[in-house]
Design a protein around this nucleic acid. Structure first.
Lengths: 182, 182
DNA sequence: GTCTATAAATAGATAGAC
DNA sequence: GTCTATCTATTTATAGAC
């Protein structure tokens, strides 16, 4: 039956989805395997049947989080950088903890501490992000600047304690992207 | 005697300097109190005579790291954003682990996970950085964009695994700042 | 594949001698 | 203020029953 197939997720997928959300929100060290497995409604012992280590899970979870973040963008905004940035640099993206944010911004300085497998996933995700930006930019350099304004702007707006300044940063980055966009 | 005074650092300063370097390089969770105290040539037991908690140390260490990063910039580059960005977005600043990097970039997504005291220190440091940028910008919005290009560009260049792309990001951000600078 | 139980290591924080 | 010793909790990872 169709509804059964739809609702039946296998365990590895459940673990990955739990991890993608938790890691994106709180980073590598703040989340234990136990927490991930609990959210996936399993116990710790089952973990190592699916992943070789916590770091292995992290790499795969970031990949999944990036894919899901990508899917949430509409096809329309995919080729309109200004429209894309309008969501990316929104208070919703900054504050909403119920859906996953973009791991490129949420985890940028976390990744620096991780092993090569994790950094490779991050790098590939960034490459795709840049390619997309190039489609609505005059040249590669302006695409890179737009990408840095999005990721950097969102990361900084999340770090600071001052809501007024945080909103100001988001707006300034949006304007910066508008001024270089094709 | 003068040389004695110069060489005699009190314990709290030694702890703070050790922590500033270690935390900036590796973030909050990767560094234990034991590691910090060992670098300061003291033992764990002495720690709580100087700081109330690890988080308390982190806040003060970030403040110190920011001050030291600030001091390393020459007076000249302080009022020349392009010159300032030339060092900030250099491979040296990205790679050199012997002197402290700018905590605004090195710890940006780490800070999001910390308590209010830590985030307040980060926010104040950012405010000073923005003020400085305003002195060589047409307006506040362009100052904010330059600051995001510096912090975001450096943070991203450190996260990724691909040296060619990393260098490209640094260069693109430098060019972006040049194009908006006064 | 999933469970319970446990190993083995590390961490933050405290107590008390000096 | 600094030391050694310890408490308590948490963590990654493994072993073995089902």
């Amino acid at each position: 039956m169709a509804w059964q197939k739809k609702h039946k997720e296998n365990s590895k997928d459940k673990i990955l989805e739990s991890a993608a959300l938790l890691f994106t929100q709180q980073g590598f060290d703040k989340i234990s395997i136990d927490t991930v497995m609990h959210k996936a409604k399993l116990t710790r012992g089952a973990f190592y049947s699916h992943f070789s280590s916590k770091s292995d899970l992290y790499a795969q979870a970031i990949k999944k989080a990036a894919q899901q973040a990508q899917l949430r963008r509409s096809e329309q905004s995919k080729y309109d950088m200004a429209l894309y940035a309008q969501y990316y640099l929104s208070t919703q993206h900054r504050d909403d903890d119920l859906q996953q944010g973009c791991p490129l911004a949420f985890l940028v300085s976390d990744i620096t501490q991780q092993d090569d497998q994790v950094r490779a996933v991050y790098t590939e995700t960034l490459q795709r992000f840049i390619k997309q930006a190039e489609q609505s930019s005059e040249n590669r350099q302006q695409a890179l600047q737009s990408v840095v304004l999005m990721i950097g702007g969102l990361a900084i707006s999340r770090a600071i304690n001052d809501k007024v300044l945080s909103d100001e940063v988001l707006t300034a980055c949006q304007q910066g992207i508008k001024s270089v966009v094709k």
